[in-house]
Amino acid sequence: MTESTETRSVGERTTSPGTPAEDERENRESTEQVGLWGDAWRDLRRRPLFVISGVIILLLLAIAAFPGLFAPGDPQAQDLSLAREGPSAEAWFGYDVLGRDIYTRVIHGARASIVVGVLSTLVAVLIGSFVGLLAGYFGGKTDSFLARFAEIFLGLPFVLGAIVILSVFNAGIEGSPGTVRVMTQVILTIGVLAWPISMRIMRSAAIAAKQQDYVNAAKALGASHSRIIFKHVLPNCLAPVMVYATIALGQFIGLEATLSYLGLGLTSPVVSWGMMISDSQQYIISTPHMLLFPAGFLVITVLAFVMLGDAVRDALDPKQK
Rank of each mutant, 00 (worst) to 15 (best):
A83Y: 06
F305W: 05
R111I: 07
T5S: 11
F297S: 06
A194C: 12
R45G: 15
P20N: 15
Q251H: 11
V55F: 10
I277M: 14
R25L: 14
V115S: 03
V116Q: 01
P269N: 08
T104F: 00
I284W: 08
Q281I: 09
L221E: 12
A315W: 02
R227A: 15
G128M: 04
D317I: 03
S278G: 15
K219N: 12
L122M: 04
F93L: 04
L80R: 13
S280E: 12
V125L: 09
W37A: 03
A295Y: 00
R313G: 14
R227Q: 13
G155T: 04
E85H: 15
T104Y: 07
V115K: 04
L249R: 00
A206N: 12
F66G: 06
Q211H: 13
L298E: 02
G11R: 15
G117H: 03
I57D: 08
T2Q: 12
L259W: 05
V10G: 09
S16Q: 14
Y214I: 11
V243G: 03
P196H: 00
G140V: 03
R313I: 02
L221Y: 10
V312K: 00
S9I: 13
Q212Y: 09
L316F: 04
A64M: 00
M275K: 05
T19E: 12
T19F: 10
S204T: 08
A64R: 02
V233M: 02
A110R: 03
A135C: 12
S4P: 08
A245Q: 00
G178D: 10
D213E: 15
R8G: 09
I187E: 04
Q251D: 06
G178N: 11
A77W: 09
P75D: 10
A209K: 06
L59K: 06
Y261I: 03
A223E: 14
W41Q: 03
I63P: 04
T7M: 14
V123K: 11
A208K: 11
R200W: 03
V51R: 13
T121M: 15
M183H: 08
Y244S: 10
L262H: 03
A135F: 05
L308A: 15
P318W: 06
G309E: 01
L133K: 06
T15Y: 07
S120V: 02
L134C: 12
F50A: 14
A248D: 07
F169T: 07
W92D: 07
H289D: 00
P72R: 06
T14Q: 11
R84S: 13
L69H: 06
P17R: 10
S113Y: 01
V131S: 01
F252H: 08
K321R: 14
G140A: 10
R28T: 12
V106F: 12
A147G: 09
S272W: 02
F93W: 10
I228C: 10
V131W: 07
W273K: 04
Q212M: 14
V51I: 12
